[in-house]
Simulated assay, not measured.
Amino acid sequence: MTFQQGRRRPRQRGIALIEAMIGVLIFAFGVLGLIGLQAAMTRAQTNTKFRADAANLAADLIALIQTDTIANMKQYEKASCAAYPRCKEWRTKVKSVLPSAEDPEVTVDTGTSKVDIIIRWQQGSDTNQYQTVLMWQP
């Protein structure tokens, strides 16, 4: 009787390889999840930046309106803006800062002392809008 006869051969082979493959698969799903999260965060950050830019542009227009005379208030409306240099310059700035920006809508109501500003822009397939209202004491 030799020592070779008393040994048994293991029947399970390759278990470590299967465990390693399952571990790699779980790791790959985790990495894909992180990539998706990073993409969503980048989209949200870009959207936030454009909203902040729109708010700053609206504040710029409010400053222009407040430093102008009451007689020129109607010059800031959409129909007259292209002919009024201060408004035209601001509108050009809006189009250069925001992606695919539409002509801003500015409505001036001197009777109620109210200016309504709406800025719209296109980001990918989404249309975004920022709106603010200025009211003043005559």
Results as ranks from 00 to 15, higher is better:
138 P>R: 15
14 G>C: 04
39 A>V: 14
134 L>M: 15
126 D>S: 11
102 E>M: 10
2 T>Y: 05
51 R>L: 13
133 V>Q: 13
120 R>W: 00
106 V>A: 03
24 V>L: 15
136 W>Y: 13
60 D>I: 09
22 I>H: 05
114 K>F: 01
83 A>H: 04
72 N>R: 10
78 K>Q: 11
117 I>C: 02
115 V>A: 11
61 L>G: 02
53 D>W: 00
43 R>I: 10
92 T>C: 00
137 Q>Y: 12
113 S>C: 04
20 A>T: 13
59 A>N: 15
58 A>E: 01
76 Y>N: 10
3 F>N: 13
56 N>G: 13
32 L>P: 01
76 Y>W: 13
74 K>L: 14
89 E>V: 06
130 Y>N: 06
58 A>P: 04
77 E>R: 08
66 Q>Y: 03
68 D>I: 04
105 E>W: 00
138 P>W: 06
94 V>E: 06
92 T>Q: 11
40 A>C: 01
79 A>K: 05
104 P>W: 12
6 G>R: 15
86 R>G: 07
136 W>L: 12
2 T>P: 15
28 A>I: 06
136 W>H: 06
38 Q>P: 00
68 D>C: 02
136 W>D: 06
80 S>C: 00
51 R>G: 09
95 K>W: 02
98 L>E: 07
1 M>G: 14
18 I>H: 07
12 Q>G: 12
10 P>A: 11
92 T>S: 14
85 P>Y: 05
82 A>V: 06
21 M>W: 08
109 D>E: 11
14 G>P: 08
10 P>Q: 07
34 L>I: 09
88 K>T: 05
111 G>K: 15
21 M>S: 14
15 I>C: 08
37 L>S: 11
50 F>K: 00
23 G>P: 09
95 K>I: 08
60 D>V: 07
5 Q>P: 00
93 K>F: 12
45 Q>N: 14
130 Y>V: 07
22 I>K: 04
5 Q>G: 13
34 L>N: 03
115 V>I: 12
131 Q>F: 10
112 T>C: 00
87 C>N: 02
74 K>Q: 10
19 E>L: 13
16 A>G: 14
68 D>H: 05
62 I>H: 08
115 V>W: 01
40 A>N: 05
8 R>G: 05
92 T>E: 12
78 K>N: 09
7 R>I: 14
131 Q>E: 15
26 I>T: 10
72 N>W: 02
115 V>C: 03
128 N>Q: 10
63 A>Y: 10
70 I>E: 10
